[in-house]
Design a binder for these strands. Structure first.
Lengths: 335, 335
DNA sequence: TTGAAAGCGGTACCAT
DNA sequence: ATGGTACCGCTTTCAA
């Protein structure tokens, strides 16, 4: 069932059907009705590939995220959900690309074969070849997170530096003097992940400011790594009374490690960090944390991208969010 | 940069370039090399829309899941990840469609506009209009889960009936006599979600077989609902000593509710259910559960779909998985 | 207000 | 082994 068939049955030309559909040219009521009747009867919908070929737009956006090896964090996944739903509102579909670097086949397909009109990149690294590549090509994109040189201008992000610092100040205000930092896996830190780096920076600087004694750790993205990490922390310095974490997936394990070590949260150990609200609320006691607004970030990324697609010459824009710390139940005065 | 440009620069015809690329017709080494040089120099890649239009295949599969209102469960999200990665292995891209019913705009686009070659449907309902619609259209699809009449034949699924029953038997063997069932939200049960229904069935029948006293509950997909649900359970029958749950997202809240009520797991209350391993391991004590093999299910769904796409006349196939219960630390003898 | 026809960028059949 | 060309289904310019 193609546009020619509709035209024939309605007794008009193909162009008239096209215009009746797009509204880009006036069509008499009479004609429009005839066409619509045929369309309704046959359940016709224009072929997306043909349309994309003809007008150069696919009405699809790409969402690029690293292949996490069936190890996605809740936050990443919240992004995906919010991006898809925000895109649907604008009648865009979302094509997923599990690509960590610009040489990945899926990434090449996305850009080279023009499968999408634009892209949203997640899990940005401070030096990110995907970003460089897209910027060089003039391909429209928005990043969730920003590189060391966010000159490309189109991004939404979290102020990890400020958030980690806020956690430190919160703990320092409560009288904690020996604080540990539980980061994402070492491999990600080494790869230059933005959140891991800026979070670590913010933590380190704020701790220095407040004269705290600190140790920093990398931790695998799973519960058992979290458990092991806490064991290590308490082994390295049993006098540690609090920790700050960016590692949502390890959270349950961190709690378990503390329980095993006989530390009661928050009575004799405080835990805080940067975690999406729904995950912060699954642990007991509920985590006092800077809530990652994954939903808002995803939605804003889509809005920015669509703005960029609609106005190719618009000035670059960005949103840097720094949500406040939600006081829940996992922090208390130093013992 | 299109195929004509490549042809001109290489001094050959467009068809020769096309054949050099596809290998569907012999091309002399000499010519092939000339063409390849030009392609490498210009970084040419064939346009996906044009290719899709010409040969009727998009090399894209659709992944259809209900819009969860930024409320995806870990399991759903694990599916998405595994489907995307499995598809990438076969050089297919994945288009996400947040559609709960066949009248959703995104769903209509997927099918009507032929944006994808086939689709994978998640979160199947016993009566599912999306399935009916696709079957009627002869559109290639595979479901994760199955309807009440899985005659369409192409699906992968979990034997929720058997899994819930296994949980009951496990608890009964431990001597529990009063057991509660914590299901997905009532709204999903009413909508006919397969897992909620079959799980409830399996639980109810097995409990009857073992002569247990049971109560069944629906519970929102979040921690606070879980907490409230436990409060209700203990209010309704304080002598309850165990529960079985399908509700992964509520798990943290269930544990919290028990702790608040002064019940120690597993000493005086046992918890078990059907939950993906990585989530079962985030709670303390770790959950004894039938581990949902989300990764395997996603991968198999992709494999089946691709088989169906490659062999349109192949006989329908399916995989029904029933993973064993992983004994962890959340169940014990009845008090 | 409507129609005819030239693309969009590939593929594949028919020739040579 | 290679070239010419019709065609995939839709959009849009040009004409009437």
């Amino acid at each position: 069932m193609n546009i020619g068939e509709i035209a024939r049955r309605a007794g008009v030309s193909r162009s008239t059907v096209s215009y009746a559909l797009s509204g880009k040219r006036p069509v008499s009521d009479e004609t429009r009705r005839k066409i619509q009747d045929v369309i309704d009867e046959l359940g016709y919908r224009p072929n997306a590939s043909a349309r994309a070929l003809a007008n150069g737009r696919t009405s699809t956006i790409g969402l690029v995220f690293p292949p996490a090896g069936n190890h996605y964090t809740g936050m990443q996944l919240d992004f995906i959900g919010s991006v898809v739903e925000a895109a649907a509102v604008h009648d865009y579909d979302v094509l997923l690309s599990p690509s960590g670097v610009d040489s990945d086949r899926s990434f090449q397909r996305l850009l080279g074969e023009r499968r999408v009109d634009g892209a949203i990149l997640m899990e940005i690294r401070l030096q990110d070849d995907r970003v460089d590549h897209m910027a060089e090509l003039g391909f429209p994109f928005v990043t969730i997170g920003r590189t060391a040189h966010p000159e490309h201008g189109w991004w939404v992000g979290l102020d990890h530096t400020a958030l980690a610092a806020a956690c430190v100040h919160h703990l320092a205000d409560l009288g904690h003097r020996k604080v540990a930092f539980v980061n994402r896996p070492e491999q990600l830190l080494r790869a230059g992940y933005e959140s891991a780096h800026r979070g670590l920076d913010g933590f380190t600087k704020a701790a220095a400011e407040r004269g705290l004694t600190v140790r920093t750790y990398c931790c695998g993205d799973d519960a058992s790594s979290g458990q092991a990490c806490v064991a290590q922390i308490l082994h390295d310095d049993p006098a540690t009374t609090a920790l700050v974490t960016l590692n949502e997936a390890a959270l349950g394990g961190l709690y378990r490690g503390l329980a095993l070590a006989g530390r009661h949260v928050p009575r004799d150990f405080s835990v805080t960090g940067v975690v999406a609200a729904r995950w912060a609320e699954t642990v007991t006691p509920q985590l006092t944390a800077a809530d990652v607004p994954a939903e808002a970030l995803g939605r804003r990324a889509v809005d920015l991208l669509i703005e960029r697609l609609d106005h190719p010459d618009a000035a670059a824009r960005h949103h840097l969010l720094a949500p406040p710390i939600s006081l829940r139940a996992s922090t208390g005065p130093a013992a």
